[in-house]
């Protein structure tokens, strides 16, 4: 335990020190301009860590900002970070659900139908070299023109981004049983459906969960970026944008930390699901 924790803690401590030094250094000009004429150097040094709109907020400022925006406002208030996180998480979860269905259906089709394999696989890979996040604003606006507003456009962007790891992971997973295992199924005279349900599907789970972790974080990124162009009122992306417009650095950093927390939470949730499945299967995935 100590062997594992020591390096992590020392790197973390180093990071904190570097952060504080950088915060003092970056905010020094700002603190000098805003300080009273008779301020002592010591007061100016301290002021660098207590600016309202610092160039780089000190870590404790971000934590205080997160604390107040989470606990000091009712969840329904526009100032509550919980509300914004929930709005983004909802869109991301919906997108992930879409991606899960789409990715698995595509993968099953590709593994079983040769025509689909040959015609789709190249385009699925090509779809990821297109910077889809960059066209998120257009998707949101166009769907808005077509009468689709609210959470759905965001979820669709999140879904488009996250279907790729799921589809490719599942294709790999469904193909992972080796010829020996498939031959065994044939000697049992198993039907196609049985081979799928008893062999391919269970084997693919070991590939689904890592893919799901990547997909969950991608869905979150997609939901956040989808909130940027529409002037969305709520959501972490909206917080980032309004913070950027009004120079509220603390708000930006708090939203960023919240987004990271959400991502970690999503990964932990997938881990938990995986653990549940492993338990149910008697210790193996």
């Amino acid at each position: 335990m100590i062997r594992r924790a020591a390096p992590l803690l020392s790197v973390f401590a180093l990071l904190l020190v570097v952060w504080y030094v950088a915060a003092v250094w970056l905010n020094l000009d700002l603190a000098r301009t805003l300080a009273d004429d008779d301020a002592t150097p010591r007061q100016i040094w301290l002021a660098t860590l207590a600016q309202d709109r610092p160039l780089l907020p000190a870590p404790h400022q971000i934590i205080v900002e997160m604390w107040t925006s989470i606990f000091d406002h009712p969840v329904t208030s526009a100032k509550s970070l919980v509300l914004h996180a929930a709005v983004t998480a909802y869109a991301a979860a919906l997108g992930l659900a879409i991606a899960l269905v789409l990715g698995i259906v595509l993968a099953v089709g590709i593994v079983h139908v040769r025509t689909l394999d040959r015609s789709l696989m190249l385009w699925i890979i090509a779809s990821q070299t297109v910077p889809i996040l960059a066209i998120a604003p257009m998707v949101v606006v166009v769907l808005g023109n077509a009468g689709l507003t609210g959470v759905l456009p965001k979820a669709l962007i999140a879904g488009y981004l996250s279907f790729f790891p799921i589809a490719t992971g599942m294709v790999k997973g469904l193909r992972s049983p080796d010829p020996m295992q498939r031959d065994l199924m044939r000697t049992y005279s198993a039907s196609g459906v049985q081979v799928f349900a008893r062999l391919r599907w269970p084997a693919s789970m070991a590939f689904l969960f890592p893919a799901l972790k990547v997909a969950a974080t991608l869905a979150l990124v997609g939901a956040i970026v989808a909130e940027l162009p529409t002037g969305a009122q709520a959501g972490l992306g909206a917080r980032l944008l309004s913070g950027s417009y009004y120079g509220q650095t603390l708000q930006i950093w708090a939203a960023l930390f919240m987004a990271s927390l959400l991502a970690l939470l999503a990964v932990a949730l997938v881990d938990l699901l995986q653990l549940g499945l492993v338990r149910q299967r008697g210790g193996r995935l």
């Binding site: 020392s10 990071l15 972790k213 979150l220 990124v221 956040i224 970026v225 990271s260």
Partner: peptide
Amino acid sequence: AFLRRGVLPLGSLVSAMPVVGIAPIMVMW
């Protein structure tokens, strides 16, 4: 090896983060 054990978890932490979110901060800097 010491640094590696400290930084690698940090790397996977960052790769789970929505890094594009730092864009407004970089624009400010």
